[in-house]
Amino acid sequence: MPEKNNLIKNTESVTIKRKKFFIYSGSALLGLFAFLNIPSSLFRSGIASKDSTIKITENPNAVKRKSRQVNNG
């Protein structure tokens, strides 16, 4: 039957071959692995290490004022 034959033909044309599938997925995994594991710091130059990120914390016991004008308190 011509209709059936067409259907089978269409199905075959969109199937990825087993060999290609493994090549693509292997390459993708390799790329992902490389992306995640190669240290980006290798490409930094002249910039200090960010290992010790400085934390800024306001002192809760200090008393702030909103203006730099004379206070006369």
């Binding site: 400085i54 934390k55 800024i56 914390t57 306001e58 002192n59 016991n61 200090a62 008393v63």
Partner: peptide, 9 residues
């Protein structure tokens, strides 16, 4: 004199 931030290091 009052500290405005916690020690950086």
């Amino acid at each position: 004199q009052q500290p405005v931030i916690a020690p950086l290091y």
